[in-house]
Amino acid sequence: MRALTCQTYGPPETLEVQDLPTPIPGAGEVLLRVQAAGVNYPDALIVAGQYQVKPPLPFVPGAEAAGIIEAVGENVTHLQVGQPVAAYTGTGAFATHLAVPANQVIALPPGFPLETAAVLPLAYGTVMHALVQRGELKAGETLLVLGAAGGVGLAAVMIGKALGATVIAGVSSDEKGQVARQAGADHVINYASQDLRPALKEVTGGTGPDVIFDPVGGDLAEPAFRSIAWGGRYLVIGFAGGDIPRLPLNLPLLKGASIVGVFWGDFARRDPRANAANMARLAAWIAGGQVRPLVSARYSLEDAPRAMRDLLERRVTGKVIVTP
C-alpha cells in the first residue's frame, strides 16, 4: 500500500509518501480500501507532537476515512467484504489501505457518498456531542458559532439550525460570512472588522447567545463569554486561533453560566451507544437535506501536507479530504 508517513515530529512538510506492506486484519478488525480521508486540525497537531495524544514514531496520520471493506478478520460478523463504511481511527487514514477495529466502523446506507462519509466522524461527531449532550441546545435558543466557516464551525451552523436554534456565525472575512449564510446562519458577524460584543448585543437584543461554540479560542474567548446569556453554556472545542485563553472565573459566576469541555473521542469510547444514536440522527438529517456537509477541496496523497498547511493557515472553508 501507499501511505503518508511521519518519521519525526514536525511541520506537515516533513511528511513523505512511502510504500508499506498492506496490513492484514486481525481478530475483530476489517481492512478498508480508503476512498477518502477527512483532514482535521488535530492531524497537524499530532504530526507536530503538540496534541494530547502522541503516537509512537513512525506512524501514518489521518483520523477518519471512508471506503470499501476488502477483508474481514476473525469474530467480525456484522460487516462484510464489499460493504461501504466510514471509520474513526485517530491515525492511519492517509493511506490506500487501513486496518481498523470493527467497533470503530460505521456501516453506510446504500448510495451514501463516500466523500461525505469521510468527513463525518470527527467534525460532525464532535458537533453532535457538543450541541446535544454538552450544550443541551434547545429549539428557540440562540447559538453563536465562532470560526463558523471552518470544518467544525460550518457543521455547527447546520446542526444548530437542524436543532431549531437561531444561529449567529462569527467569521473572519466577508467571504467566509457568505459561506456561513449559505449553510443557514441567521446572522453573520465579521469579527475582523466588527467589535464582537456590541455586535452580539445588537443581534440578540441585549440578551446574548444561550450557547457559544468555540473552536478558535485566543482573543475571541473573553469578549464572547462576556456576551453570553444568563445560564448560558460556553463550549470549549479547541484552539485554532493558537492561544489557549484564560477566562476570569468571576464571569461564569456573574452570568450563572457554564464553561463546558467537549472531548468527542473519549465520549465515543466511553458511550458508543449514545455516539451511534448521534450519528444515526445526523444521517437522517443529511438524507433529508437539513444538513449538507461541504467538501470544498480534494488533495492527493502527495498533497496531503499542503492540505494540513492550508488548514493551519485558515485558508479552508468547510471540510477538505485526501483521496488516496
Rank of each mutant, 00 (worst) to 15 (best):
V203K: 09
N40E: 10
L294Y: 06
R314F: 07
R226N: 08
Q104I: 00
A277E: 11
G218P: 00
S300P: 04
A162R: 11
D303F: 08
L200N: 08
R197L: 13
Q194R: 13
Q133K: 06
G49M: 07
R281A: 06
V295W: 12
N250G: 13
F112L: 00
Y9D: 01
P110T: 01
A107W: 01
G164R: 12
A48P: 02
Y88H: 09
P11E: 01
E70G: 12
V76G: 08
F59D: 10
D174P: 09
L235N: 00
R281N: 00
I69T: 10
L200R: 09
D271E: 14
G241K: 04
A102R: 03
A280W: 00
G140E: 14
A297Q: 15
A63S: 15
A99V: 09
L114M: 07
S227I: 05
V39I: 15
L137Y: 01
G206R: 08
L143F: 06
L163Q: 04
T207Q: 13
L154Y: 05
G10Q: 11
L120F: 08
A63W: 00
T5M: 15
E202Y: 05
K319E: 13
P109V: 01
L200A: 09
T317G: 04
T323K: 10
R269G: 05
V47C: 06
I259R: 03
N190Y: 07
G49F: 08
R2A: 13
G90D: 06
Q18A: 15
R2N: 15
E202F: 02
G261V: 05
L144I: 04
V291N: 01
R197F: 11
L146V: 01
V47K: 03
G289I: 09
P245L: 14
R292V: 10
V17P: 09
F213A: 05
A297W: 04
F263R: 11
G241R: 05
Q182I: 02
T126Y: 02
G177T: 11
T166R: 15
V236G: 00
H97N: 15
A48T: 03
K176R: 13
Q7Y: 13
Q178A: 14
M308V: 01
G231C: 08
A240W: 07
D243A: 12
I68L: 13
G170P: 12
A280S: 09
R226Y: 00
G140N: 14
L301M: 09
L15W: 07
A117W: 02
A284G: 02
